[in-house]
């Protein structure tokens, strides 16, 4: 009986299929990451967000009592929710609430510029991937991190 030499061996077929499948899966994963980064890039540190935080930092710095209260809170609590406009922190709660509303801020935290991984972990639920993209650099003393009502995020350093 003659041996039929047509076609591929099973091993050959499996190897080629595995190799091609591996390449396609790798390309798909890279492309998904690229698409996600593209979508996210438009939501982080928008022009409007940066200006809004500049306005909020002006409010904080203009009032020395506010800065004193923050200086008292930060060593122990590591971060303060400034958007709540608590009277113990901001003195003029009504003005602060008007300002937060006008700036379309959903949540804003003041922290030290060089904040550690504990702060990142605690804020991760609120800010998601954005918190991982913040680099602790610069000589400024404080950092504002905010989430806006339109789903965008922004952060600035401020204060000497």
């Amino acid at each position: 009986m003659k041996k039929n030499n047509k076609g591929f061996m099973l091993a050959e077929t499996l190897i080629v299929t595995t190799f091609v499948a591996g390449v396609l899966i790798y390309m798909f994963i890279q492309f998904t990451n690229l698409n996600q980064n593209y979508d996210e890039s438009y939501k982080y540190n928008t022009v409007e967000g940066i200006y809004a935080l500049e306005d909020l930092s002006d409010f904080i710095l203009d009032n020395s009592l506010v800065i004193n209260n923050i200086d008292v809170l930060l060593p122990s609590e590591k971060y303060t929710d400034i958007s709540k406009c608590d009277e113990e922190v901001v003195i003029n709660s009504e003005y602060c609430k008007n300002l937060v509303e006008a700036l379309n801020i959903e949540k804003a935290y003041v922290t030290t510029n060089k904040f550690n991984n504990t702060v990142k972990d605690n804020l991760k639920d609120e800010f998601g991937n954005f918190i991982n993209k913040i680099k602790s650099e610069g000589s400024e003393k404080y950092r504002l991190i905010a989430k806006f009502k339109d789903g965008t995020f922004a952060t600035i350093r401020f204060g000497e």
Binding site: F59, D62, N63, N92, E94, Y95, N98, L99, A102
Partner: peptide
């Protein structure tokens, strides 16, 4: 819009937006 708040004890601070 103009948002006013009640006058502050420190009249040098911003009170309107």
């Amino acid at each position: 819009d103009i948002l006013n708040t009640a006058p502050l004890s420190d009249s040098t601070l911003n009170d309107s937006i």
